[in-house]
Amino acid sequence: MTTPPPHELDVRPILAQGEEPFGAIMAAIDALQPGQALRMLAPFRPAPLFNVMANRGFDCADRRREDGVWEVTFTPQGSGPADAGMAPGSAPGAGFWPDPALVLELIGLEPPEPMVRILEEVTMLEPGQVLFALLDREPMFLFPELAQRGHEWAGNYAADGQSYRLMVRAGAKDD
């Protein structure tokens, strides 16, 4: 089975005309093939949409591109063999990322120490390089910060629920 490529929707022209893009987004969602993702381009981070889409059964992954445009991918939950079992918000296709350039063992550190270590290390990586980290728990406060800085992530709990595995792919250098 092959997954169709994501459908792309750029809402910037709609917003530029001063119109509300919600209808166009919903129409695009309704027209998706089974398992197909929607990739949306917006001039800002469309946070209110995430909850709407979660309720419609879509996982969201967002990142800010180098040109300042927000690229948000809505993936139907439970689709795509490489993404099965990943936490909501994980970037789609993380199974095809390169091997980690760096492995961080962050078990037994108190929050927010794991977040500090990951953000410090990912800042040093070249764009596209991947970092793997092992943590005690899902780093909830890290995710918005990664998205804000244009990095992608994918993570899930290990089968025994005792540790959390996180991959971060560095975006463009941010400073």
């Binding site: 946070a47 979660a54 969201c60 992954a61 948000v72 909830m140 995710f143």
Partner: peptide, 8 residues
């Protein structure tokens, strides 16, 4: 996770 984790 999408969205800010901080409730303002």
């Amino acid at each position: 996770m999408p969205g800010k984790s901080l409730s303002p």
